[in-house]
Amino acid sequence: MSVVWDERGGATVVRDGFPQSYVDPDDPLLLVFEYVEQFALVLQALRPDPAPLAVTHVGGAGMTLARWLHRTHPGSPQIVLEPDVALTELVRRELPLPRGHRIRVRPVTGQRGCPPCATARPTSSSSTPTTRVSCRESSRAPAGRRRWPGCCHRTGSSSSTPPTSRVCAGCPG
């Protein structure tokens, strides 16, 4: 596991020989991996204005999407479910999170940490747009990572799937 810096000042988080995420600490709006861009497009469609979104990320790596959300929706409360404690420590040391963030990392798998997302119901006081995003619905899984067959997310909302007060995004590592 390592962080590989490039000549532009960005860094790629590499795990087991495969790039997991790209972070430019000076430009969190730069999204290099297509799957991260797809999740960002969904979040933009849900909330085009800069109001906060409550988001749970399943898998963190470099926390690229969490950093993007912090910049585009300041004050967003975020939970990152990342079971690899060593990876989280490496990222925090080499790619510190921005000041004033509301990103909390929990050392659990998506299967353990996401069941509340699957059963959550919006509160009457919630003004947060609501949906669930499935890693299985992304255009393609990141290099070297398999899609998660046990994903607890459901896409969108329908009469059979009530919307939740959180957006779940990502794949477990």
Rank of each mutant, 00 (worst) to 15 (best):
M63A: 07
V105L: 03
R166H: 13
R136S: 12
V108E: 12
G156T: 09
L65E: 04
A66T: 05
H153L: 11
L65K: 00
D49P: 04
T12P: 00
E7T: 10
G156P: 10
D27T: 11
A51K: 14
S138Q: 11
V32S: 03
H73N: 05
S2D: 10
S134Y: 02
S139Y: 08
F39G: 06
Q38N: 14
L29I: 09
A120S: 15
P163N: 06
S2C: 07
L46V: 08
L97H: 00
S158N: 10
G9D: 02
L87T: 13
V36K: 02
V91R: 04
S160P: 01
L97R: 00
S138L: 15
R154K: 10
L90N: 04
L41G: 14
P48M: 06
L53D: 00
P19I: 05
S158G: 14
T56C: 15
G110A: 05
R104H: 13
R147G: 12
S139G: 13
R146I: 09
S134I: 06
D49I: 10
T88L: 00
G170I: 05
S160R: 12
C171S: 11
H70E: 08
A169C: 15
S158W: 08
V4D: 12
T109K: 09
S76I: 03
F39N: 06
R146F: 12
P163K: 12
P129L: 05
G110P: 02
V13H: 04
T131N: 06
P172Q: 07
T109H: 07
R8F: 11
G170S: 05
R99W: 07
V55R: 03
A51M: 13
S158A: 14
V80E: 02
R102C: 01
T56K: 03
R99V: 13
P129G: 04
C171Q: 06
R102Y: 00
V13K: 02
V36F: 02
T131M: 05
P96H: 10
L81C: 12
P19L: 07
R92M: 05
P142D: 09
R136T: 12
G110K: 01
W68P: 03
T64Q: 03
S21A: 14
P116E: 00
E82R: 08
R47D: 08
R99C: 10
A120H: 13
G10K: 10
L31R: 05
V108Q: 12
Y22C: 02
H73Q: 07
D84C: 09
A45Y: 09
T56P: 01
T123G: 09
P98A: 00
A86S: 15
S125D: 13
R140D: 15
H70L: 03
Q20D: 09
V133H: 11
R140V: 10
L95P: 00
R145G: 00
A143D: 12
G110M: 04
V133P: 03
Y22G: 01
T119Q: 09
